[in-house]
Design a protein around this nucleic acid. Structure first.
Lengths: 209, 209
DNA sequence: AGCACATCTTGACACTGTCAAGACCGGGCC
DNA sequence: GGCCCGGTCTTGACAGTGTCAAGATGTGCT
């Protein structure tokens, strides 16, 4: 992006491309110690640069965390996009989207810990605004395609509910991941939850009690 | 010096009971700026004491946050307990529990922001260990009473799913509460979600796909 | 070659959490 | 009463943190 003509090879200056290195170091650090264990100086230390170096790429400490969040949303969007595209049966798309979302969340705890924390991220950032909304849009599209007989308001309701459930699973299983990596169990849980929510709110006329 | 003799009741010492005041100040601060905006010195400042005063009551900054989390779990447990007790029909108890949980979450954002953050809390704390497990136990009991035909494993699965969904709702709507206080809508959403999950996983033989 | 720019370092400042040591208050003891 | 003692808070200090202005250093362009 800012890094000139994307020259990762030459990279003879001092570091190559610091921005990516700093983001990676931040992700690792947050994954280890949580967002409260994050420290700009520690990140700089791990990247082998001075404490003030990150400021030239991200301005702020918040700027760096925002970049991490954006990368997380990019990963999520890409993964969900592929999952949805690789499945043709509309009913199965929802489950594929759910699996992709939870998988990404569990595989990138350092990103997740930042992505949904307004106090850590610069909400006015352009890239963040662009990417942070995409997952919900994708889910909304799948739900809408799956339920043409529902009005937009009801589609939004179902979308929010499923979105909340997926977020809940990710939050729960990333917090307690150190003592619980019940991946197969979790997969079954997500599947049944999404299926049940699907048949209960879309297949029947539900969504309005 | 700055505080002067503004003592509320007798409480003539220096402050009355500092511990409660510090907890309250922490809750307010976290509710305003999020956990990353928390500062032990700022809390002490708001309470009108020196920066080192909290250490005599909570030891650590983490100790203070842990006390906040414990208080949050106490609130939650009390509210859920009352809700469950005030409803006799087992099928309605689940919904009452869900409402109580979400209500408490939205009403106490300063607590919620700390309760489920292992990096902010001292997990080895006695009171924390005692209280942090209670909400899930309560939910598990309601689910078990509602589904005597399911084996414990399935009960756990359903419990986890509902728990994740409730947490997801709270996380979502406390993060974006500044621009979205759709309380009535949220109430409907929670109701339908819980009902659907109930009928889908318990009423039918579901829970095992 | 030399210039302009991007990149990183240095030094400094205010702020934070934490600790040891001391000051202060209350109520007990003789 | 006078005295000490435990609980409560303050003071002063230290290392660590984020951020900024200024300077140093390498890179590419003309």
């Amino acid at each position: 992006m800012v890094t000139g003509p994307e020259a990762p090879r030459r990279a003879n200056y001092h570091h190559g491309d610091l921005a990516a290195t700093l983001i990676a170091a931040t992700v690792d650090l947050v994954a280890e110690k949580g967002p409260s264990g994050f420290s700009l100086r520690e990140v700089a230390r791990r990247a082998g640069v001075s404490p003030a170096a990150p400021s030239h790429h991200f301005g702020d400490a918040r700027g760096l965390l925002t970049a991490v969040a954006v990368q997380g949303f990019e990963y999520l969007d890409r993964s969900v996009g592929e999952a949805v595209q690789s499945v043709t049966v509309p009913a199965d798309r929802l489950r594929a989207l759910a699996f992709a979302s939870v998988d990404i969340g569990l595989r990138h705890p350092g990103h997740v810990a930042v992505m949904f924390r307004p106090d850590l991220v610069d909400g006015s950032n352009e890239a963040f605004q662009e990417w942070s909304g995409k997952p919900l849009q994708r889910l909304g599209a799948v739900v809408a395609a799956l339920a043409p007989h529902l009005d937009p308001e009801q589609v939004d309701a179902v979308t929010s509910t499923i979105w909340a459930t997926l977020n809940g699973f990710v939050n729960l299983y990333t917090s307690t991941a150190d003592r619980l990596d019940a991946d197969p169990d979790l997969r079954r849980l997500v599947a049944t939850a999404v299926d049940v929510l699907h048949t209960g709110t879309i297949a029947t006329d539900g969504a309005q009690r």
